[in-house]
Amino acid sequence: MTTTQAVTGGLRELKKQQTRQAISDHATRLFIERGFDKVTIADVAAAAQVAKMTVTNYFPRKEDLALDHQDEFVASLARTVAARPAGESAFGALRAAYRGAIARQDPVLGFSGPTFARMIADSPALTARLRDFHDLREQALAGELARETGDVVRARVAAALLAAVHRTLFEETLRRTLDGRTNPEIAAALAVSTEEAFAVLEPALGDYAVREV
């Protein structure tokens, strides 16, 4: 590949990212203003000044326009486990990562703000799509654990338990957001809930899938 081709490819990719972000930003604004169920793909396309097909090329489902962190969300647990250092268990890696995400008030944990949280809660379609993402995240984690350990059944059980903790804490974050709590207040409460939730699983999974030195 020549330097010119590399530059052209880089600019093309940057343009795609900018277009995707612009579509997402306009969609979020419309959803918040009108409510998710009252906005159409055509409305989003008009606001972003692109064709409807362009919107669906980037976001195959309308729900994905609102939940645009889905790729990061689905991959997050498996990625954390895959990146853990030698001597650390899958459980330990996920607990440490969750603690760090609380400190950052990471949107992937549900730190979305009251307006966005209300939009999700008020839409059955978004609530259902979010459940899909939780399920896909669990499946991705199970796949990574099975790949590492070679034990598919135990990997699926472990992933179900670990994903359930993350799902419960996510729902708790949304609940507190809808109750009007500030992000710092939610983070403080979530830090306590996180320790309690992971402690329930530690006897069973604390030493599971420890990465070999």
Rank of each mutant, 00 (worst) to 15 (best):
A191E: 15
R20D: 04
Q49I: 15
A86G: 09
A47Y: 05
R156N: 12
A158F: 01
G92C: 02
A158Q: 00
D68R: 15
D64V: 11
A6Y: 08
A42E: 10
T115M: 14
E144W: 00
L162N: 01
A155V: 02
T194C: 05
Q17A: 15
P107K: 13
T28R: 09
R20Q: 13
F36S: 01
Q18I: 13
T3G: 15
E88I: 14
M1V: 06
G180R: 11
T4F: 04
N57D: 13
R167S: 08
T56R: 14
D64P: 02
T56E: 10
A45I: 12
M1W: 13
R104Y: 03
E196P: 01
D179W: 13
T149W: 00
E172N: 15
R131K: 11
T19N: 03
E148L: 05
V165M: 02
L145Q: 09
A86C: 03
V192P: 05
L145D: 10
G100W: 03
V55M: 11
Q70V: 05
L205A: 03
V7T: 13
H26Q: 12
A86S: 11
K15A: 14
F133K: 06
T80H: 00
L126G: 10
T127Q: 11
T28Y: 04
T194M: 03
F133I: 08
T28L: 14
G87I: 04
R99E: 13
A164M: 07
E72G: 15
V108E: 03
L178G: 12
A146Y: 01
D71N: 11
L136N: 12
V165Q: 03
S193Y: 11
R29G: 04
A155G: 09
D25T: 09
A209D: 12
R61N: 08
G113E: 06
A46I: 01
A27V: 07
K16A: 10
A90V: 03
L126W: 08
L94H: 00
K16P: 02
A101H: 03
E195S: 11
T54F: 03
Q5R: 11
A42T: 13
I23C: 02
P85L: 06
G35Q: 02
L11K: 10
A93W: 01
H69M: 06
T19C: 08
S89Y: 07
A121E: 15
R29I: 10
V55N: 05
F116N: 05
L169H: 00
H166Y: 14
A140F: 06
F36H: 06
D151W: 00
V152I: 12
A27K: 00
D64H: 09
A155Q: 05
Q49S: 15
A83N: 10
V39L: 03
T2I: 04
A199Y: 06
E196N: 09
L14Y: 09
T115F: 12
R118T: 15
A160Q: 14
L65D: 01
A128H: 09
R118F: 14
R79K: 10
T54H: 06
P60M: 00
I23Q: 02
T8F: 14
P114V: 06
A121G: 13
A42L: 08
A66M: 14
V213R: 05
A27T: 02
E63R: 02
A160P: 02
A146N: 06
A121T: 01
P114I: 06
F59W: 14
E196Q: 13
L126M: 08
E13L: 15
G10L: 01
E196F: 10
P107E: 15
G180K: 08
G180M: 04
N183R: 12
Y58K: 03
A93G: 03
D106I: 07
A82M: 01
A142Q: 04
T182I: 07
